[in-house]
Design a binder for these strands. Structure first.
Lengths: 106, 106
DNA sequence: AAAATAGGTGACTAAATAGTCACATGTCAA
DNA sequence: TTGACATGTGACTATTTAGTCACCTATTTT
């Protein structure tokens, strides 16, 4: 499960697709293809499938179109449960350092 | 750069190696091998190389041993610069919801 | 109904990655 | 200084993943 999310995020093209949805949610496959002239429609479709399988993208059919929506929940989950373990000790240490520096300045 | 970190984190074995270093920093290759009976020494070494190339692990030679240390900075960076973008709107929304619920209860 | 539009499937090739092995180097301890 | 120990290198195979294509179905639009 977590595995799928990490793998999905490991590809630059897929991160760019998430960025595109973050900028404008609910885009169709065609619209997303327009942003990636370097790839064929099939390439984009495959990446979207991976993102959907990882739960990072949800879709809704609308007639002959398919709308794609960003779902940040899996990212929030790995951030909270896995990354925080490594990042927090460091970031809180940095925050502490920053606080010390500010105190020193006053 | 970010690419290397994401790719490095995409493998379960490598995440397990980071966990091992998180639990006990400064382990040698042999010690880390002992935790992964399913892999050969060479397999473990390759994964450590990937982690080191991504900046997630730093090493110090100590005689005929090589000590491996976890470097959480790259993880903190992707958490702050990339994941926060997606996770924060959600987590802050959740925090807001939680606050609302608590207010309602009182 | 015919043509145009939007998306989907299965098979296929090419590239990247995981994993292994024979062999090589450097280090320590007796 | 010999033998055991700890790690490194280059080549190799197998698996996975990215990317493409010919062909297909479903939905408008005219």
């Amino acid at each position: 499960m977590t595995q799928d999310v990490f793998k999905a995020l490991a590809d630059e093209t897929r991160r760019a697709l998430l960025d595109a949805l973050f900028a404008s949610d609910g885009q169709t496959l065609s619209q997303l293809c327009a942003r990636h002239p370097d790839l064929t429609r099939f390439g984009v479709m495959k990446h979207l499938d991976v993102l959907e399988a990882a739960g990072l993208v949800t879709t809704v059919r609308d007639g002959r179109s398919k709308l794609h929506f960003l779902n940040p929940v899996p990212i929030a989950e790995i951030a909270n449960r896995w990354i925080a373990k490594y990042a927090e000790p460091f970031t809180t240490a940095m925050v502490g350092l920053k606080a010390d520096l500010e105190k020193e300045q006053s």
